[in-house]
């Protein structure tokens, strides 16, 4: 299990990544985080909601009420054009960060 302190700075990039291709809703995003990290990291609901809120206020996400086929109404989130740009920026930032930190790992 990863400590939430370590991963805090990457919450945004994780969420933005999962929304790159199509809109999604809270629980589905949460489940995909756990799945993609092979159970090593589960994002707490409050962390997730707090990130949605922040990303939306910054204009990176847009929320709308949507209905799953035959399902119930949920709040869906989708990436805005600014969100795509922000993802690219965060991605480059991470590449550099990773490169730097890797210099100190043996």
């Amino acid at each position: 299990m990863i400590s939430s302190d370590v991963i805090r700075g990457y919450t945004d990039i994780i969420i933005l990544y999962l929304l790159l291709d199509e809109p999604s809703y809270g629980y589905e995003i949460s489940r995909r985080i756990t799945d993609r990290s092979q159970g090593l990291y589960t994002m707490k609901e409050t962390t997730l909601y707090s990130a949605f809120n922040r990303l939306e206020k910054n204009g990176y996400l847009r929320s709308f009420a949507g209905t799953e086929t035959g399902g119930k109404t949920r709040t869906y989130y989708e990436l805005t054009p600014q969100g795509h740009t922000h993802y690219q920026l965060k991605k480059e930032e991470w590449m550099v960060t990773k490169k730097v930190v890797d210099q100190f790992i043996k």
Binding site: Y25, G26, Y27, E28, S30, R31, E45, T46, L48, Y49, F52, N53, R74, T75
Partner: peptide, 12 residues
Amino acid sequence: AKSELGQMMEDK
């Protein structure tokens, strides 16, 4: 916030 969190918890 409450309804969103509730939705996520219910789904999970």
